[in-house]
Every structure is written in structure tokens, then in C-alpha cells.
Design a protein around this nucleic acid. Structure first.
Length: 454
DNA sequence: TTGGGG
């Protein structure tokens, strides 16, 4: 007997329910339909009855419930689901002996989603979701109630899973499955296809405001999709995440410091200590690297330490300190890891590629599109511009370069008195910045050449 | 067991 499939609404039990509509939800489901899962008795280590029954061929037939229906089952009941992964948590050590990861899944009956927590002895046994929007099949996961909220818990002894590509694929074989997963081609394929069709008309959306670094604002929460390039544990439990999305942070509203007293030079960085050169050299030279300050509450930090990841920072805020942008992650923030195939990530990378393809990609984005207003130095017109980050990480300590920067502070004269310098006045200290770095530049005139030293 | 978007 071929199993009937619906979008999470399949019920192949004793021949009942062979026309489950795609739109069925917990609310529309006919009442009185018996729930046949039995609960494990207290003290049992394994459930007495699993959410499967032998089919005519003797193979287990898994009865997939809509998520909303599954949640109406009693605590500790075992259910089978076919759903879409909407959010991917970080894989971390549990407080016990296992590794754990939490996924958020959605289906038509529960668009707001619900968490599923997995445990396994090693990370290879955990689901490794390639992209949000992928489809997951879950067999015999347990309903768990905590503070009146329901969740699903994957038990490594009797649960199993399979992961499938999302709506763009026609591949019906799972790209990853647990050892115990019982795959039924006809049965699973039909549900998978319907789930993908549903996804086409109901793409996973984010209602929250999503900004790029080029459009960040002070003191209002937003989502930021960016690459975490480096993580640093500072003092007092403060962690600093170095994030990048290929765009430049906006020009800050910073009162230019007329540096009449040498002690008032503005700081060059937000950190207590600047990044060591070997780390600095790994950071991109085009596009701002925002410093995001947080504490160790965010377990994802452990994940970031192991490599470079794209992530969505939900409800992040920014402020300006000393004319520099500072990201802040409060406990209300959430971090979601993203794959390279995630739509927002692909969009960021395409935008960066477009930027790199222009001749002025090393100019601050804020200086565009009025780049023609900038007067170039005639005798070096053919020399290309570089960013301050490129200069800071240059292989040769002494090098010539041309750069487009903002003068943040000047000592001892006003920055618009650069003509005095050219006219022969020696000794001037400038604080210069572009979207990639801030430097102190000591200018002196020597043999008719102006040097910047830092 | 663990965690369960504090």
C-alpha cells in the first residue's frame, strides 16, 4: 500500500485519513480523531510504542503529523514530523557528556516555528543543515514541556532524522540521515515534494528590519547579516566579535577635534589593546570590520572561535564612541548561523563582488557617487588608491600610497591649514580615518615629499 | 543527563 502524503499531515493508520488536505491544521482537524501514540511509562528508558506501525510489506510506516497537531499530544509522546528548518543553532558541548544543537522548524500548521533539540556523542551524528529552508524528517521525537512551552527533543536512542535540500531541488534522497532513519522512497518523496511546493509559495521570511553595515543606525535594534571574522575575549568577560558584510559603515557624527592639546588625541580603536598584526592581516582590506561587544552568555561564541561563519545577529544595536561604530549584543539579541547558500549571504557576496568590480571600490562608500568632486593629485594621478587597512597590513613597513581619508583631528594646526604644511611648516600630527581603520599620521616635510608615519 | 532563544 502506498502511503498517502500531505504537508506534514500524513496519517496512514489502519487505512484512515487518506485524503488529508494540505491545508489541514490543528484547528481544522476533525475532532475525535484518536491519538494512538502511547506514552512511555515512568521509569522506562525507551517508549513502549513508537510512532510507527508495520505496513503491509512489513516495513514500518511513519505517520507524519502537522507540527501544531503534534504539539497537542501529551508530554513525552513520540511523534514523526516533516518540516522545514527555519533557523540553525550552533553546535556546542552540552553540560552533560554530549554535543547538542537546536534547530527551529516550521510547517504550514506552525509558521511561527518550534524548537527541536538534538543530542549526540559526537558532532558528526548531529544534523548539519546546509541551509535554512532545507527540509527535515524526524521520526520518534519526543514532546517536551518546559515552563508551559512545548518543544521537541531528539533522543539518540530511539529518534532518527533525515535532511533534504530545500525548494530549489528535486533530489529526493536525503543529504544526511541518522543511522536508524528508515527511508521510504514513495512515502517520504511525496511529502517532500509537497513541502517544497509549500515553501515556494511561503518563503521563510524575516519580519525584523535587516540592515547592512552601510546603513546602520544608533540606538535602534535591527538584524545584521555578516561574517564573523575573528573573536577576542577581552577582560571582564567581555567578548568582541569582528564582523564584516562587505560594505562601509556610515560616516559618524563626530565633532572634529581641533587638537590644540597633545593629550586630547582621539583613540584609534575601541578595544583596550589593538589587534595583533598577525590577526589584522587576516581581515579584509575593503569594507568595514565592526567590533561587536558582548558577553559570554552567547554560546555561539564558542562556535565562532572555531572558524569563520556567516550569521544573523537579531536585535543588535549600535552606537558611536569617539566617532567609531560599536556593535552591542544584549541578552535580547539572538545569533543564527547561516550557510553560504543562505539568500541574505548570497546577496551580500554579490554586492561585494559588484563593488570590487568598480574602479573606486577602495574609496569610502560614503564618498560616492560624487567621486568626481574629489581633486586628485596631478603628479600621482595614475597611482591607485588603497585603504588604510591595506596600508596597515602592507608587507613593507615603508611604502608609498595614496588614500582617501577623513581628518578626525589635527595638531597643532587646523586640518584645513594643510597648505601651511606644504608651504614648509614641519611637524603635524593628524588622526585620519577611512571605513577600514583609524591611524595617527605624523607629517613632516623632507626633500619635498610629505610622509605619513604611524 | 544534557537543553528548552535567560
Amino acid at each position: 500500500m502506498e502511503a498517502e502524503a500531505g504537508a506534514g499531515a500524513e496519517r496512514q493508520r489502519d487505512g484512515e485519513g487518506d485524503t488529508a488536505p494540505l491545508t489541514e491544521t490543528a484547528a481544522t482537524r476533525p475532532s475525535g480523531e484518536a491519538r494512538k501514540w502511547k506514552r512511555p511509562r515512568d521509569g522506562d528508558t525507551a517508549p513502549l510504542t513508537q510512532a510507527a506501525a508495520a505496513g503491509p510489506s512489513g516495513e514500518a510506516q511513519y505517520s507524519y503529523l502537522p507540527v501544531a497537531d503534534a504539539l497537542m499530544e501529551a508530554p513525552n509522546a513520540l511523534v514523526c514530523l516533516f518540516a522545514v528548518v527555519s533557523e540553525i543553532g550552533a553546535t556546542v558541548h552540552s553540560r552533560g557528556t554530549d554535543f547538542t544543537v537546536t534547530l527551529k522548524i516550521v510547517d504550514q500548521s506552525r509558521p511561527s516555528g518550534i524548537s527541536v533539540t538534538f543530542f549526540a556523542e559526537n558532532t558528526a551524528l548531529l544534523p548539519c543543515v546546509r541551509s535554512s529552508g532545507d527540509v527535515i524528517s524526524l521520526h520518534n521525537i519526543m514532546i517536551s514541556v518546559h515552563h508551559e512551552d512545548s518543544f521537541f527533543k531528539y533522543n539518540k536512542k530511539f529518534s532518527s532524522f533525515a535532511l533534504f535540500e530545500g525548494k530549489a531541488s528535486t533530489e529526493c534522497r536525503p543529504y544526511q540521515h541518522s543511522a536508524k532513519y528508515k527511508y521510504h522512497a514513495g512515502h517520504d518523496n511525496e511529502i517532500l515534494t509537497k513541502m517544497r511546493l509549500w515553501l515556494v509559495s511561503h518563503p521563510l521570511g524575516h519580519n525584523d528590519i535587516e540592515l547592512q553595515l552601510m546603513s546602520i543606525k544608533s540606538d535602534s535594534a535591527f538584524d545584521l547579516v555578516c561574517k564573523v571574522l575573528h573573536v577576542h575575549e577581552a577582560s571582564n568577560g567581555v567578548w568582541i566579535l569582528y564582523v564584516w558584510d562587505g560594505t562601509d559603515t556610515p560616516v559618524t557624527e563626530f565633532q572634529m577635534m581641533l587638537d590644540t592639546e597633545s593629550v586630547t588625541s582621539p583613540p584609534l580603536h575601541l578595544e583596550e589593546e589593538p589587534l595583533p598584526r598577525e590577526v589584522l592581516c587576516t581581515l579584509p582590506c575593503v569594507g568595514s570590520v565592526l567590533r561587536v561587544f558582548t558577553n559570554s552568555f552567547f554560546k555561539e561564541i564558542l562556535h565562532f572561535q572555531k572558524g569563520i561563519y556567516w550569521a544573523r545577529f537579531c536585535n543588535i544595536t549600535c552606537k558611536q564612541e569617539f566617532g567609531m561604530w560599536k556593535g552591542i549584543m544584549l541578552p535580547v539579541c539572538r545569533v543564527r548561523l547561516l550557510s553560504n547558500e543562505n539568500g541574505s549571504v548570497v546577496e551580500r557576496l554579490k554586492m561585494f563582488d559588484r563593488r570590487i568590480a568598480t574602479k573606486v571600490h577602495r574609496w569610502p562608500m560614503a564618498s560616492l557617487p560624487n567621486a568626481s568632486d574629489i581633486t586628485d593629485v596631478m603628479e600621482h594621478k595614475s597611482v591607485g588608491y588603497i585603504t588604510l587597512m591595506e596600508s596597515l597590513t602592507h608587507a613593507e613597513v615603508i611604502h608609498k600610497f595614496k588614500t582617501l581619508v577623513r581628518v578626525v583631528a589635527a595638531y597643532p594646526c587646523q586640518p584645513n591649514d594643510l597648505s601651511l604644511l606644504v608651504a614648509g611648516r614641519n611637524g603635524m600630527r593628524l588622526t585620519l580615518e577611512d571605513p577600514t581603520a583609524r591611524i595617527r599620521a605624523y607629517i613632516h616635510k623632507n626633500d619635498g615629499v610629505i610622509y605619513l608615519c604611524y
